[in-house]
Design a protein around this nucleic acid. Structure first.
Lengths: 189, 189
DNA sequence: CCACGAACATGACAAAAGTCATTGTTTTGG
DNA sequence: CCAAAACAATGACTTTTGTCATGTTCGTGG
């Protein structure tokens, strides 16, 4: 719905043409390859392929296409990963409606547009979690007990508790629930 | 952004006039009072007042205005509460873009439009939680320990554990994390 | 090559969480 | 008004978590 609505919004601008519209990340790649647009607008959380994967793919293919991420999530971890993937813009869905056309123009002319709210806190903290820790924390956040996580990952019960204990202290959280909440908020999960 | 984009989308329809647009629930009430529109499109999770509160307010005021909820969340609990609040439509943001204009027409003519995916499962289960249980579970989901919750609510430590134990068994969950997840998914939190 | 950090494991202990039975007091709907 | 619910508390008990110390293995970068 947002997609069609944004198409409608952008069609009203004289200097912007909407050349295509994709329902998921994979379709997005396909269309980008075929149409070679100047600018791609993508969400992060999409079916099949995320917006970050799409951006990385565009970077790897060395296409001239620039990427603007438009997403719901004001998470510094997302922004950081997006910038690593070479995107030119990162906007929030709840920013005023007229910023998108402006952002497209800026980016088309080689500039960058980062949501001001996020730009400041972006480089404040790096993700301190290791892959294993993240993985364990994710399962824990899904409501599994330590032993369930252990058997799912073929680990020892105590090992899992160690990982969780590590994440709790790294994130200075109260407990595993708190740790998961903090990691999620920062975009580290 | 979705708001302006939807305005643009709906402006393209000949038989639909966008008479106003509000940034939060309170503004929505204010505008509804002034403009008395035929149909109001509202999200559920909004600042100040939720879409459900807005719908209830419209019902209480006995206005002729009909309400369509457009939200991200496919939660049966939300739909149920929305229907209790007398809304005429409940659509998901990720449904195709052309359903909204049709929905508006249907609702304007006295009909109802409920997202088919949700309509089936809507009456499957009622929220089994009491107010207290919900309240305690919410704090627990925020990462507080039982004793922190207890002192926040002026309750006894064990009482809080009892409530959580109750919710866990009512929702047949593994633990408090799981219980919170289940409740959230159903829209009971 | 070797230091370092990751991943994995064990055991022991303390703290928190979860269960159950029981007993009251309010609220509230028929 | 009465019966159900909801709300609140206590105690006793088990299980799960969280912490700590300690040790092994393995791969990468300087």
């Amino acid at each position: 719905m947002l997609r069609t609505a944004l198409s409608a919004l952008l069609s009203l601008e004289d200097d912007i043409d909407v050349v295509g519209s994709a329902g998921d990340g994979l379709e997005g790649m396909e269309l980008t390859r075929q149409l070679k647009p100047d600018v791609v607008i993508a969400d992060i959380e999409m079916p099949k392929k995320t917006g970050l994967e799409l951006a990385n793919w565009i970077k790897d293919q060395k296409l001239a296409t620039r990427v603007i991420i438009v997403t719901t999530f004001a998470r510094s971890g997302y922004l950081r990963r997006a910038l690593d993937a070479g995107v030119s813009g990162y906007l929030l869905k709840d920013s005023p409606g007229d910023v998108l056309p402006d952002a497209i123009r800026t980016v088309y002319n080689g500039g960058r547009t980062i949501d001001p709210e996020l730009a400041t806190q972006a480089w404040s903290e790096a993700d301190p979690l290791t892959d294993r820790e993240r993985q364990v924390l994710r399962l824990s956040a899904a409501g599994l007990t330590s032993s369930q996580i252990a058997s799912k990952l073929n680990l020892n019960d105590g090992t899992v508790r160690n990982y969780i204990s590590e994440t709790i202290s790294k994130l200075s959280a109260n407990n595993r629930i708190d740790a998961a909440r903090i990691a999620r908020d920062k975009g580290w999960l």
